[in-house]
Each structure stands twice: as structure tokens, then as C-alpha cells.
Design a protein around this nucleic acid. Structure first.
Lengths: 346, 346
DNA sequence: TTGAAAGCGCTAACAG
DNA sequence: CTGTTAGCGCTTTCAA
């Protein structure tokens, strides 16, 4: 550790008044040029633009927000650790930047209270719109938030009239996995459920479980479906693997609900000298980057997060522009078969 | 996709004027209570507090920012995919919330220009301070930014008088890995370097490489040190593995510089029917979550991100409070030996 | 200890 | 098409 001294020499930034002076016009005109507003001559536009460039002018967002828009949208996610969130964010950004909007991200944690606080903070910052990634807040909370600010929710199978939603078709995703396993010859198949916050039926956890059960029924295997109650996390996956070992009629295949859960199961298997698909076939959900790594090679479901993000960005911009009818999109997932699923040992 | 209609019914939020009216005091007094400022009677404080609670008052950040502070700090990271960033962010948040500061995150991408733009956006939002995670911008840029706003940089071994920095002791980290490998009996050891943006010598890439070479020298193995030029990414790791296969005197151990690089190498090995440590011992850096998963079990170096984040938060709050001497912290890393390193085949 | 008034940088009426 | 003016919600002098 080292130390030294220096007095900071902050220099004041150029304001719209400076620009107006420099260009010899009124601040109102400068503002109009800035906003690309109607009713400015080409000559005026050019002069003001030149002055802005010359002064290195950058508009002060809070000041803009006090009267009009901040041209910034906020995104709330439980954490910034989930690679899937990163891909969605990339998709969102790619759309937003075409309209010169910024994206600012706030981490909301894992419970309803702290996520609500995080949303409030974003609203307090005068965001023009909000994106909530797989929020755990109640449906009523979502309605309330949507009354205050344009809102798009990702990962909730909402049908609310007040907001837009975008999610993967988790029902279909589960079915794809079940079809794949049944085709390989499996009959007794388990699903690892996320017990925590099972309350909201429009959450992916619930829909994937329902999709699994429905698909099993369609194959006439309703009686062979096993549900393992655990949590969708690395540790939850480990626990699920331990539970699987205690089952009287052990499954020959396990649908993990989420990649991270499957990875936990792989870890537990590895620690007891076993592996998938030798112990049992194993499938995840999300096509996370880790799932593609050689020694893992996890069969999973891809959700095309980038396209999802693009849709989210587009919808939010539309809402900000005044659209009030709600739109709810369900994007088609894709099975990604890899090495952890195979025909059952006879 | 479904659709329906509903007119939004935005209700106006309570302002400090509403609070003042409700409490029967001046806005100036209400403001003083809000800011916990000096010179308010207990009676005044209580009345105003009660009114704030009654009205559900939440201060409008942009408005605060126009005259004083926003009580919000911005964090720039290349993306939000790196689990290490998430842990650092948690550490930062844990400190900030004790002082009622918010953290807002902006993704800056991977090149200097877009990171600078991202930083500008944060400044335009009137953040009270900035945290840059492993930025790729030039040292001169950092100095410039630090002149405008309190700044803490993570992952640059800076000695600038204008800003604070916190990073892991990458020199020591590399040495720990080399010591470990030499102790196992390895002599010919390779390091995978991140060729991209090698320009700034205070970046971890450079320091880890130098640390590797220095440690090899100390062991009298300077002549056995091999440097493989690639990139620190999954694909870069795959390429590094292919390069390693072409070497005339192949190393018995590889120091990958970063976990993600090591994972790419593991993938490439797996695809050619090999593995570590059978093909060669392999160590990463970062102790990412993936490295701990059973079938991976990657030997790596832990950087204690949470503590790092706490230090960052503390330093930034100090800077915001007016400290001007710079502080540069180097945190001690820890070797995490796992299954990918072993004695060389004789 | 409290309050009145000015002003932060910008946008939105409205006049000219 | 351009300029003048008021005011967004808050903090900060400065008087009382």
C-alpha cells in the first residue's frame, strides 16, 4: 500500500447555456437541436451542432429528467452473475443504442422486499422505463410498478394488461427434453423442482414443472414421473443428487430445471466416483456457457437470450413512445443435446 | 402472444414541498431533516420524519443531484457475465448501503472507446463517485476521469496520485501457482498470455505474466519457461491448447492466467479424448464458480472478491467525503489446489 | 433554530 | 423559425 497527495482540479462542464452563447442563439433553440425537435432551420442545426462539438457538450441527464426524459432505462436483476442475464442485457443494449438510450443495471437480490427497493431506486432516478429480469415480486407489485413507469418483465408468463412480458416457452422447453429422453428409451424420469418462492404460478419454475408433468402424461408416463423437491442452485443440485440416491425406484434420467442445478448434481456424482449419463441421464436448462465446456457437455435447452433482449428493448421503447396495449411474447426454445443424455442401461 | 388495453393512471409522487406543507414547516427545514444536516430541533426532526413516512416520500435523485449529491455511485464493468464481478459488486453494496448509497452498473464492453463512453454516461448521470472494474482504458484516461469525479479502480496496479486502486497481488498469485507446480516436480511450464491490449503494464495480464517469469527464474527454471500467446477467453483457451500441441518441447504443466482460458483448454483436450492432469497439469486463476464443479475441479487462485469489494466501497466513500491522498491496495491471493494439477508422468 | 428566495441545467409553453 | 420566460424538486446562501 502506497500513498501520495494531490488536490483535485475539477473543471466545470459545458452547459446548454454555454452552447447557446457560443452559437449565438437562445437556449431554447439549442435545446431543440439537442432533442431533434420540430421547427429548426438547417443553418441553426448546423451552427448549434458545431458549437456542441467544439465545447464537448454532453447533456446533463438529471437536468433533462427534471423536465422531460432521461433517455435512460433501468434493469433490475437478482444479481449480475447469471450469464443468461448478460446475454439478455447485450440484446437490450443493441436495440437501445439505436435510439440513444442508456441502460443502467441495479442488483435486487433474491427476495421480494429487496427487489422492490431496487425498483424504487430505479424509479427515483427518473428512468424512462424499467426492465425486470425474472423478478420474484408479486403480481400485484408488478401492476403497481407498471402504473408508475413503462415496464417490461422478462421470464414471467404474465397476462397483465398493464405491462409487457417476454419469456421463453418453458412449457415447450420441458416437453423438448422429455421427448428427447423418451426417444432414447427412458420411462422413469425425475424433475428437480425449485421449491423456494413457488408462490407465483407465472414464474418459469412453475411452468417448467407443469410442462414436464404434461409431457410425461402425453407419453402415457404420468405414473413414472418423479418430482424431487430442492432448489435451483449449485448446492440445491448437490442435494437433489443425494435425494435421487435414496429413491426406491430410481429414475434413469433427470430433468434438472436449470443448468446450475444440473451442474450441482454433476458435482455430487463426481464426488462419489460416478458421472452422467452412466449413473443417469441428465439435462439442464439455459444453455449456459459452462454447459458447453468439454468435461461437462451438458444436454440443455437454449433460450436465445440475445433475441429475447432485443424484443425486450423494442417493446420498452414502444411503451415509452406511448403504446398502452400490452404485449406478451413467448419465444421458442431449442433442445441442445450433448453428452450427458444417452439410452438407459438395460 | 396476446394483447389487451389499459390506460395508465400515473399518480404524482410526493415532493419535499408536500412534506413541508404536511408538517407545516419550510422546505428548507424539510431538506435539512432529509439530509440529517446540522441545526434542526428534535421536535422539527420528528414532525418532518412523520410527514415523510405518512406521505411515503422518497427523494427525487436527479433533483438532489442538481444542487448536491445523488447518493449514488456508478460501476463500470466490461460485462455482467463474470462471476467475479458479481462478488465484487456484492462486497461494494454491503458497504455502500451502510451509508445509504446506491450502486448502479453500466456495461462498457471490451474496448477503450466504448468503456470511455460508458464512463461518460455515468458521469452525465451525476454519480457521486465511480468504480471501474479492470478497465482497458489508458492510464491517461484514468487520470482525466479522476479529475472529474472520485474514482476507485479495481484490477489495475496503479500508482496514480489522483485515484485509488484495489487489486489482487497478481505477482504473488502467479508465484503461488509456479511454486505449487515445481513442488509437484514440474520443470517445463508454460504460461498462456493475453495478447490483446498488452499495452498497459499495470493490467493483471501483464503482472501475472511477469510474476510467472519471475517465479520461474527464482526456481532456476528461466530456460524452461514457455509463453503461449493467445487470448483469455474460452476460444482463446482452445487455441492455446492447440498451440501447446505443436510445441517442440511440450510443457508438463500450463498456467492459464485465467480460469476461462483454462476451461477452454480443458474443452479442447476433452474433444481430442484427453484431460488434465493426464495430458499436462493445468491451473487457472480467479476461482470462478465453474472451476469448483466436480468434473472440472480446476486448480486455481482465489482473489477473495467480497473483501476486495468491501475495500473498494470504503475507499470510494472516503474519497467522496473529501480524502485526496491516494490509496493503492494489493490483496493477498490464495492457491486453491484441485484435481487438474499432479506430479508429471515420468 | 427556522424560513424566504435564488438557482442547478434543462424543457415546454407561449410570443414574436 | 426563433427567443423569452417559467418552473421541474431539491439544496444553499442569507436574513430573521
Amino acid at each position: 500500500m502506497t500513498s501520495s497527495t494531490m488536490g483535485p482540479t475539477r473543471q466545470k462542464r459545458a452547459t446548454i447555456v454555454d452552447v447557446a452563447h457560443h452559437a449565438g442563439v437562445s437556449t431554447a433553440s439549442a435545446s431543440k437541436v439537442l432533442r431533434n425537435a420540430y421547427g429548426v432551420s438547417d443553418a441553426m442545426r448546423e451552427r448549434v451542432q458545431a458549437s456542441m462539438d467544439a465545447l464537448g457538450y454532453r447533456p446533463h441527464r438529471p437536468a433533462r429528467g427534471m423536465r422531460g426524459q432521461t433517455f435512460t432505462v433501468g434493469m433490475m436483476a437478482s444479481d449480475i452473475e447469471n450469464p443468461f442475464f448478460s446475454i439478455i442485457a447485450d440484446g437490450i443494449t443493441s436495440v437501445l443504442k439505436t435510439e440513444n438510450y442508456e441502460l443502467l443495471i441495479s442488483t435486487g437480490g433474491y427476495d421480494s422486499a429487496s427487489q422492490n427497493a431496487s425498483v424504487d431506486a430505479l424509479i427515483d432516478h427518473q428512468m424512462d422505463g424499467l426492465i425486470l429480469i425474472a423478478p420474484v415480486v408479486s403480481g400485484a407489485d408488478l401492476e403497481r410498478i407498471a402504473r408508475d413507469i413503462p415496464l417490461v418483465v422478462v421470464g414471467r408468463h404474465s397476462s397483465s394488461a398493464a405491462l409487457d412480458s417476454v419469456s421463453g416457452d418453458d412449457d415447450l422447453g420441458s416437453a423438448l427434453v422429455v421427448d428427447h429422453l423418451v426417444e432414447l428409451g427412458h420411462r422413469r424420469i425425475a424433475f428437480v423442482a425449485n421449491h423456494q418462492d413457488q408462490l407465483e404460478p407465472d414464474r418459469p419454475e412453475s411452468v417448467r414443472l407443469a410442462g414436464f408433468l404434461g409431457a410425461m402424461d402425453r407419453h402415457g408416463l404420468g405414473g413414472e414421473a418423479v418430482v424431487i423437491d430442492s432448489r435451483w442452485s449449485l448446492e440445491g443440485g448437490r442435494e437433489a443428487a443425494r435425494i435421487a440416491d435414496t429413491l426406491e425406484h430410481p429414475p434413469t434420467a433427470v430433468v434438472a430445471g436449470a443448468d446450475v442445478t444440473a451442474l450441482g448434481m454433476l458435482s455430487e456424482l463426481w464426488e462419489t466416483g460416478r458421472s452422467a449419463p452412466a449413473a443417469y441421464s441428465l439435462a439442464g436448462y439455459d444453455n449456459s456457457r459452462t454447459s458447453s465446456i468439454g468435461p461437462i457437455a451438458l444436454t440443455t435447452v437454449d433460450q436465445s437470450g440475445f433475441e429475447m433482449g432485443q424484443a425486450v428493448g423494442r417493446l420498452l421503447l414502444e411503451r415509452i413512445s406511448g403504446r398502452t396495449e400490452s404485449t406478451h411474447l413467448l419465444l421458442e426454445p431449442q433442445l441442445v443435446p450433448r453428452a450427458t443424455t444417452a439410452a438407459p442401461a438395460v
